[in-house]
């Protein structure tokens, strides 16, 4: 025990260095977190008295087909959007970073623009691209002698559209992350590889990928956390209507059930289940991508 205290005292500067985050956490987050835990076992309409309902909120949730549907939708959209996007982003960053590429800063800004472009413009574009009757894509399909696709009438179609929106918005963003991550790879490694006559592909798999592992872990973690909190895209795509079939994500479900229908305790319960789902998947990610870190 005395050793421990000594150890702590010895490292006091380090505690000071990490203290801002935890001070802010204690000040601004602890109470709300405990309160929402408490709320998750209550029934409350937001105004009247709270009634303790035990785990009824949870049992209702697990018996509600809409909840499971939302979970399926969410996982589908998440995989559809993030898997391919992260891979393409990594390749894109690698390519932009190649010495043969000219106008690097132009490409950087061009690919990053979707992330800056205001949602108002994005929504108009995507709605008019994927429209059933007047959509640009269907127009070209008809020109090519193919059939129109009713994108927004089937779950699969809607998920593809939403995944496309997400990939489009975050491809450049993730590429920028990788691009800055590439800067932490010493150049002499590449030079040595070149001397050994390695091809571009070999360099990518033998040097870039392993060296980027912590950065890949970062992007995977962030897209897991973001992917289970998808909200904006399905909501804006549907406009003022209720979400399209197959597009109701967990956060949308939580908002609708809880905050629109005034079942506040229930919303808190959903958010805690969501917390555990994200936590579980994050731990898996951590185990898979964190192997060689230390």
């Amino acid at each position: 025990m005395g050793n421990m205290l000594k150890e702590i005292y010895k490292n006091r500067a380090l505690y000071l260095f990490i203290s801002p985050f935890f001070i802010l956490f204690l000040t601004f987050s602890v109470f709300p977190i405990f309160f929402s835990m408490y709320l998750s076992v209550q029934k409350w309409d937001g105004l009247g008295e709270m009634t303790f309902v035990g785990f009824k909120n949870f049992s209702y949730m697990f018996s509600d087909p809409n909840f499971w549907q939302a979970l399926v939708n969410n996982v589908a959209i998440w995989l559809l959007a993030n898997g391919p996007m992260l891979m393409v982003a990594l390749v894109l960053a690698f390519v932009i970073n190649l010495s043969i590429v000219k106008f690097k800063s132009f490409f950087r800004i061009a690919f990053f623009l979707p992330n800056i472009t205001a949602m108002v413009a994005v929504v108009i574009i995507f709605q008019s691209m994927f429209g059933n009757e007047y959509g640009l894509i269907n127009y070209f399909l008809v020109q090519l002698g193919l059939d129109k696709v009713a994108w927004l009438n089937s779950s699969t179609g809607v998920r593809v559209v939403i995944a496309a929106m997400i990939s489009w918005r975050y491809l450049g963003y993730n590429a920028i992350i990788f691009l800055s991550g590439l800067q932490r790879i010493p150049k002499d490694l590449y030079e040595a590889a070149e001397l050994d006559g390695a091809t571009t592909a070999q360099t990518f798999f033998k040097i870039t990928l392993p060296m980027l592992r912590p950065i890949i872990l970062f992007t995977v973690m962030m897209s897991t956390i973001g992917g289970f909190q998808i909200f904006t895209e399905p909501q804006v795509l549907a406009g003022n209507q209720s979400p399209y079939p197959g597009s109701e994500t967990i956060v949308l479900y939580m908002f609708r059930e809880g905050f629109v229908y005034q079942n506040y305790g229930y919303a808190a319960a959903v958010s805690w289940v969501l917390f555990f789902i994200i936590g579980l998947i994050s731990i898996l990610n951590w185990k898979v991508f964190n192997k060689s870190e230390d």
Binding site: P32, F35, L39, G46, L47, Q235, N240, Q241, S242, F255, R256, G258, F259, V260, Q262, Y264, A267
Partner: peptide, 19 residues
């Protein structure tokens, strides 16, 4: 569109207030 608008954010915030 008050009848149809999802009114998500504001309801959410309201609730948190009442807490």
């Amino acid at each position: 569109h008050w009848k149809f608008a999802p009114r998500l954010a504001e309801n959410l915030m309201w609730y948190l207030f009442l807490i």
